[in-house]
Design a protein around this nucleic acid. Structure first.
Lengths: 246, 246
DNA sequence: ACCTGAACACCGTTCAAGT
DNA sequence: ACCTGAACACCGTTCAAGT
């Protein structure tokens, strides 16, 4: 029996226990999230899964926020970036990539919440940034503006997914919140809140997908019309010119 | 001594202990947040402040999310809505109201985080909605579009404030996250991530205020150019026309 | 040098049992 | 009817002490 054929000595209780490395920890975290949801991906529960104490994880991961960011970066591998190199209108393809990103986050809204605060910075995230920047560049968006635009687009997608984090655990809670807002809107006083009263629950209307799509298009239509302040020396006397012909 | 001049009997330990009512609880929560920050506004800590057990609070408040939403609504009283009824370009005045809203949230980014998931639905929030809707109406934005636009504008402002929730406790954490992303961007491979590499930390550049302002203007410029799908019978064969002349 | 048991200082929420 | 003590089932993070 040669060395290469020797199965590595398995630990007593779990033959396939992953090695305690950063990658192993994150891999286990992803699996745990798939099995039990993000809210079970805690330092303690994860340590338990790895047959160790929570303190051990702090050797490889700074804190819970960093752990979640790493998990998200892993998940970002599922985003479809192929439209970036396909043919067709750049705007449509931009929306396709962003929609794919949003769909991935919708699966784990809690992760979207974390992403707003602790952004991922791994390879998958850079892949996504690069794809979006290449589409904006193709669309003739100046580089300085694209740098800000990519943030704006991702922030909108992320925030939209994060909104669904309500009642990830208990759907009754989410319903309660929604119902409270709907009640408030329906009951709006025509004298104190005339515009709200006139619209009523129209303010909450429409399928989420249509609103998401509309939002993407508002941004994509607005970006070419909105130069960065001072970009071409227009800031002058304090109040920049915030519009520009297409 | 008549009844109206009789001071109400004070409880032994805290003469000015607020009554245990919903309003009293929320008032105390606001004070506690001012004194110790949002992360101390927990059911347990709040109960302690009110000299009772946490279970008592559940008679008046459904859960922690609802508590935070109520606190936020209270805070929204500080938003300056006066530009809504002032004179001048409606776009500028819209930005002024939104900037005031964002400034209030910046003081308590954790609350902005909650707001993305559990929106407030109190009077202050309706006041804000109505002010924004009146400005959009003044700008000639069709009502159905304004209903979605107001959401989009507030979501952007809220998400921007929420991003600052990183390191609300320990500034070192926030620095760590930011540094990690900056390192990743600077170290981007020119072959795998050419666009990211070309921009580098330009992606993180600029004062937050300028980016916020730019974002508002992108939205405000995009909204008049982007009809809601099917609004005027244009949806036809599945792919709506997502642009419109100003 | 590397790792971790045990502790510190907390959480949200529920419910049986009191008044 | 209204309220709550006590319990249940957890948290993140640190650090002294082990190997």
């Amino acid at each position: 029996m040669t060395a290469h054929s020797t199965p590595r000595p398995s630990r007593r209780e779990r033959p396939s226990k992953p090695a305690l490395t950063r990658d192993g920890i994150i891999e286990t975290a992803v699996a745990l999230m798939g099995a039990e949801g993000l809210r079970r991906v805690t330092m303690r529960r994860l340590a338990q899964e790895l047959d160790t104490g929570p303190a051990s994880l702090y050797v490889y991961v700074r804190n819970t926020a960093e752990l979640h960011a790493a998990v998200l970066d892993e998940l970002l591998g599922a985003v479809d970036l192929s439209p970036a190199t396909a043919s067709g209108d750049w705007r449509d393809r931009l929306v396709r990539v962003l929609t794919s990103y949003t769909r991935v986050l919708f699966e784990h809204p809690g992760l979207a919440r974390s992403a707003l605060v602790a952004r991922p910075s791994g390879d998958r995230y850079l892949d996504l940034l690069d794809a979006l920047l290449s589409l904006l560049s193709e669309g003739g968006v100046p580089a300085d503006r694209a740098a800000w635009a990519v943030d704006l687009l991702l922030q909108f997608a992320t925030a939209t997914a994060a909104e669904h984090a309500a009642g990830e655990k208990d759907p009754a809670d989410a319903e309660g919140e929604w119902a409270a807002l709907a009640r408030a809107l329906r009951g709006a006083s025509a004298t104190r809140h005339p515009h709200v009263a006139a619209l009523g629950t129209e303010l909450l209307s429409g399928p989420g997908e249509a609103r998401l799509n509309w939002g993407f298009h508002v941004l994509i239509n607005g970006i070419p019309h909105t130069p960065r302040p001072g970009a071409t020396g227009a800031e002058a006397t304090g109040s920049a010119d915030w519009t520009e012909p297409p």
